[in-house]
Amino acid sequence: MSIWKHLFNLEERRNWWTRKMPDSPLRDYYDTPFPSRDLDWRQVDYLALDFETTGLEAKQDQILSVGYATVRGDRMLLSDATHILTRPTMAIPESSAVVHGILDDEAAEAQTLEAVMPILLNALKGKALLAHHAAIEYEFLNNACKNLYGYPFLAPVVDTLALEVRHFRMRDQAIRSGDLRLAKARARYGLPRYPAHNALTDALAAGELFLAQVAYRQSRRALRLKDLIVVS
């Protein structure tokens, strides 16, 4: 897989999968082009996304809830803000339940991941995925797509954690433990404290952090999507 990353850009790989893939929600998702890397960041739609999961291993653990909202350029729209519980096929480990507060009974009434994925992929269409520490969301999505549809997940990804690392590096600041956590990063931009570990609240929190980060990145040179995304 990794060799393709270096040989083809994201859009070329999307085209390739589109030609190859049978009909599926993922195929529908790939039908819409990704936002161009050269677009001014304000002309791009982002989906601020957060998962609560049973653990951090995409291969073993499962998604418990999905929260997202669209960031359209310099504003976050709450009109499509969404929170969905998904039903895991395993018991929720206590270690994760204490974090997200989702209990087995609640999860049992939730929709299956199979039912939720088409909704989520539809929301992601034509957008950049935006999350704090996006590798988690990306890997869980990738894993779900492979399991459900047999093909990998692709998207341009904006990671507020990676942007925060760059911010530190650019100012030659040392990063101390905890500095990159969502709440701590938000505090640096004067953003209000939110209760953590609800997928939608965390998605909104990441979206707001992104708005703050780009507000601080504004410079003489127009900021483009490619200046913000992580290589994937």
Partner: peptide, 11 residues
């Protein structure tokens, strides 16, 4: 009301 709102950040 919340769903009608848009969130902005101003430096």
């Amino acid at each position: 009301m919340p769903e009608k709102l848009q969130i902005r950040y101003f430096r």
